[in-house]
């Protein structure tokens, strides 16, 4: 009875000391600190290639993109973040063709599921690595992905 009582006391104290050893071992080793100073380390802060920051439409040096305005991404988007506004343009051969006017992407509604990028038949969309999305006005989160005056790349199947 008394033996057990003392055994409880000493094993209890030993267990507490074991715990204290762990915290102290971290206290005396500042090298184990893993938090980073965020705005200061912006320069070396690189996101991984696959990082889903936002949906972007890559343009080449001639301001050309691959989007044909087919609307598959719009259909596949589960929450209506994408809206495609198309216009009719008379091509070189005199035929009227449907081309993209604006590819509207609402970042505020996007859930980053990646279906638009996966289903795009011409690989026009990609993930951007930008992650600092905070803005003061929510209308700024509605973006037009195709740049001003951009045209469809030649050779992209319609």
């Amino acid at each position: 009875m008394i033996k057990e009582y003392f055994k409880d006391v000493f094993s209890g104290i030993a267990s507490l000391l074991r715990g204290m050893k762990v915290t102290l071992s971290y206290f005396v080793r500042p090298s184990t600190i893993i938090t980073q100073k965020y705005p200061e380390n912006r320069a070396e802060l690189k996101m991984f290639e696959a990082f889903r920051g936002e949906v972007v439409m890559p343009h080449n040096e001639n301001n050309e993109h691959k989007c044909t305005g087919c609307g598959i991404c719009e259909i596949n988007c589960p929450n209506g973040s994408i809206e495609i506004i198309s216009k009719f343009e008379v091509g070189e051969d005199g035929k009227k063709r449907k081309v993209i006017d604006q590819h509207i992407y609402r970042l505020a509604m996007c859930t980053f599921c990646g279906l638009c990028i996966k289903t795009c038949p011409s690989n026009a969309l990609a993930w951007g690595q930008e992650f600092e999305h905070a803005v003061f006005d929510r209308t700024k989160l509605t973006k037009v992905l195709n740049q001003e005056g951009s045209t469809v790349q030649k050779g992209v199947k319609e």
């Binding site: 094993s11 209890g12 267990s15 507490l16 074991r18 715990g19 050893k21 762990v22 915290t23």
Partner: peptide
């Protein structure tokens, strides 16, 4: 280390 810190701790048990 998890065990040392919490599992074995007499208060926790």
């Amino acid at each position: 280390e998890y065990d040392q810190l919490l599992t074995g701790n007499v208060i926790f048990q």
